[in-house]
Simulated assay, not measured.
Amino acid sequence: MANDLTVVKANSLIEATYRLTLDEMRLLALTIGTMNPKSDKQVFEFSVSEFVNQFPEVNADRAYTQIKSAIERISERWVKTEDERHVTKFRWVSSQTYFKKEGRFKIALTNEIMPYLTQLKGQFTQYQLNHISGFSSVHAIRLYELFTQYKRLGDRYISVEDLKKWLQLEDKYDRYNNLNQRVLTPALSEINEKSDLFVEYEPIKKGRKVTGIEFSITYEKPVKKRPAFPHKNKYGKFVTLNRQDPRMSNHEYGEWVKDCLKILEDFYKKLEDVPNEDLLFYWIFLASNESNKSKLGSKKTFSDELKKRGYKIVECELVKIRDN
């Protein structure tokens, strides 16, 4: 199965009212992602391993049980759409099957849901499945879809009433502060950290009451800068690196290194995110004392990464590798 699946939905479906668990949302997203919007295919079959590969947050050991439970519930779920004249309710799924001891499952979509997913001629929204695959909350997925509708415009106003309706929270969070703290803040943190969008927001008041929220939607995530290393004077007057052999650096340098290494380890999560300068620092800090460790790898890990980027280390300095 491809890793670049595209989810396509009619805008009226994105703004519909429905209640689904996280695994049910994932199940439907995977199904819609594999659909051809120009086809009328309604039955889809997947393996548990394909589900796990698409959603890295899913524990592989518990995936079969989670999927089986989601499949059993999803056929009972309703989706409600409404416009100025009509309120319509229908099911998502007409039948579902899980194959015992085979790690496979199958679902059939209803006739009523198909016009919202295929042969779309009106307004619709599409996004890559991998942009939501790391989310761990239903609210993050639903908000992401609502923002994606308006990403070309760059902003969207949503009344608190509509927001709570779409998130199925009509009977919760009478106070905006609670809605903000328990729903908006964690969901937007996931969207900003794990998806292609970056969203900021501002509550809009009518009198003293927050009645709506203005969301600003961009692709430009703010660049976070690594915290500065502590000043060497804190450790003594002679904090000196021995560039020929970092292991022979003085004791004060070793103490400084421990604090600097902790800053790097707290800040960077993936090797590919580390800039060349800090790859060099990593190498030096690990070379200065064999007891120093990094979650990202060994000295060789950092020197190999620099080599891939076209650099080598000579006396603790970066030197551009010349092509022969």
Rank of each mutant, 00 (worst) to 15 (best):
D155T: 13
S136F: 05
R142M: 06
Q168Y: 13
D171L: 10
Y176C: 03
L146F: 10
F147L: 08
Q168T: 10
N177M: 12
S136Y: 11
V138N: 05
E161I: 13
V138G: 01
S136L: 09
L153Q: 14
E170F: 02
L146S: 07
L143G: 01
S137P: 02
D155E: 15
S133N: 13
E170H: 00
D174A: 08
L153I: 14
N177Y: 12
S137Q: 00
R152W: 10
R175W: 07
H139W: 11
Q149I: 15
K164C: 02
W166G: 02
N178Y: 10
S133D: 07
L163V: 02
S137K: 04
D174F: 11
E145C: 05
W166S: 06
I158A: 07
R156Y: 14
A140F: 08
D171V: 03
G134E: 14
K164I: 05
L167P: 00
Y150S: 15
S133F: 08
I132T: 07
S136T: 15
F135Y: 11
D162S: 10
S133E: 01
L167I: 00
R152D: 15
E170I: 09
Q149Y: 11
Y150T: 10
Q168K: 10
S136C: 11
T148W: 07
L143H: 06
K172V: 00
V138K: 07
L146W: 11
I158L: 15
E145F: 04
I141H: 01
Y150Q: 15
D162V: 05
Y173W: 07
Y157W: 08
V138W: 09
K164L: 04
L143Y: 04
K165D: 06
D162R: 14
R142K: 14
R175C: 09
L163E: 03
